[in-house]
Simulated assay, not measured.
Amino acid sequence: MIRLGVYFRGMSMGAADLVPGVSGGTMALITGVYEELIDTLGGLGPHLLGVWRREGLVAAWRAANLTFLVTLLAGIFTSVALLSHLITWLLDDHPVPVWAFFSGLILASIALVLAPLRQRGLAQWLALLVGIGAALAIALAPGIDTVDAPVWVFFASGALAICAMILPGISGSFILLLLGMYQPILEAVNAGRYLHILAFLAGCATGLLSFVHLLKWLLHHYHDTLMALLAGFMGGSLLVLWPWREAGEHGQRGDWLTPGQYAHLTGLPAQVWLAALMVAVGVLAVWLLYRAAPVHNVAQQSSP
């Protein structure tokens, strides 16, 4: 894969991770790098030190597929640095079309994931339903009020959030909202509380390196069942992305409303036609991303 392409796919993941309710894992799946990402992360381990000693640093770097990983991470961090203010502004000032656009992304992604599956038996249907149920349970769960959280809570929050972040359909930032840790982490960053930041990052690293091995094993042994589960996660996440919702506190979203209720309560236009257009734009964007990655598309990844 062209490394510039990997970089831009990382940027799409970073942009998605900035939005509570949208997963960077979804963008990885759409753009065709999900399985390579899981395989690369799952391949990181002590055995690479042996490769380094026997064959040198270059061989270890290649064995770990670090060019791919570093390029992808560079895209993610670039997107977070450049787009955080833009996405915050869009969510604050133009919430309906933005959430509608992401809904279109998810709708098209579900079809993209399910269409090429060769196995469509009871196990796959059950996995799909379990995924939908799990995502709905997370979406409807009440947030936890966390005040002056200790360092270990930052560590645990990082471990949970990163696991969600690499699952399509489940947003790590949304998990932080539910845990009541979204605002404390932002405040720790803004205040320069480096002990809390390091604890959060350590939790992310621990959770990622632990959970990714399970994902890698499932991808290689129960590929279609896992993909059906991930499609269910994405389907359930559509509840979170419903465009007409009240604004809540600390970045959370309020009650689900009809377009008419939204216009009445907020005094803002419902923008139904614009929302429908942005759903279509989201669907088109997924199709274009899919066509742009013919070698790494979902259809080929589903082959056993």
Rank of each mutant, 00 (worst) to 15 (best):
V286W: 07
A115T: 11
V298E: 02
Y34C: 02
A135Y: 00
N297T: 04
W273I: 10
L177V: 14
Q271P: 00
L44I: 15
P304V: 10
F174W: 06
S173P: 06
L288K: 12
L18A: 06
H196P: 00
M27K: 07
R120F: 00
R120L: 08
I170A: 08
A161D: 01
H264Q: 15
S237C: 08
R3Y: 14
A191N: 12
L176N: 05
V240F: 01
V151M: 14
D255C: 02
V6H: 05
S103C: 13
L136R: 08
G121Y: 03
A64V: 05
P97F: 04
L177C: 05
T40V: 04
V279S: 05
L257P: 01
A134W: 04
L198W: 03
I132R: 09
H221N: 12
W152R: 10
V283E: 04
R3V: 08
R193C: 03
F154L: 11
L83W: 01
I162S: 08
A15V: 05
V240L: 15
F233H: 12
P95Q: 12
L201R: 03
A15W: 00
A28V: 06
G32R: 00
T206P: 04
Q271S: 09
G169C: 11
G104C: 08
W61L: 12
V189S: 04
L265A: 12
F233M: 13
V96R: 07
A292L: 14
L136P: 03
H47P: 00
L117E: 02
F154P: 03
